[in-house]
Amino acid sequence: MNDVPTPEASFDTLGDRAAGGDGRAEAVLFEELRVRFLTITKRRVQPDHVEDVVQDALRIILGKYRERSRDCGLLVWSLTVLRNVIGNHYQTRRRETERTTQVEDWQRIGEETPGKDPSGGLDHDETAGLLENAVAELARRSPRCGDIFRHILESHERGGGQREISQRAFETVCLEHPDLTRNTFYVALHRCRAQLRSLMDRMETGVGHA
């Protein structure tokens, strides 16, 4: 179905090469992003708007990826851009519907508009606040998970390249949990993440005051 060759390097490496002027790397990178964006967007946006949303997101990424902060990986960052574009798409549609709705029909707007953003809709501040609460709760419930996240984030805080951050985090976690190997560390981290996501979901849906 798709005859674009599989990239030979990670998104971040492709991004670095593209930023350095490698046109082929840039083409491969954006094709890889496009394929994934289509998969995600098709599940959230009406079919006739999918291509527009994906192109909008790719346009923003093309304009910003060279200057973006290296705090998180290129794909994760790109997905946050797509998320915002999908959110904006729903907001725009809601405003359009409100503009064209007769005044006497205004009460029905909430039921009739396609304005509910299925991407979730928490803004940056809300996400940060929810994350802090969930991380604190996770650490109370599972001190081991708290330790794992703490060591990783402390390593990020100290800075350095990917290899340095990763190695330092792994070694400090191993000081407290010497039974871990590199892969069991990743598995343990993945399980902690699942718990964190579950807490965030429950906190988000359990919030009593919208």
């Binding site: 902060s69 705090d71 794909l75 996400t127 940060a128 650490a139 109370r140 996240f149 402390e154």
Partner: peptide, 28 residues
């Protein structure tokens, strides 16, 4: 899909690790 859903939280974590470290140290 899971990566997409978790992207804002992952970005928030790595954007300001010091803040979450403070939270985790306090709980500890």
């Amino acid at each position: 899909e899971e990566l997409f859903e978790g992207a804002p939280a992952a970005a928030a974590m790595t954007a300001d690790p010091a803040r979450l470290v403070a939270v985790l140290r306090a709980v500890r």
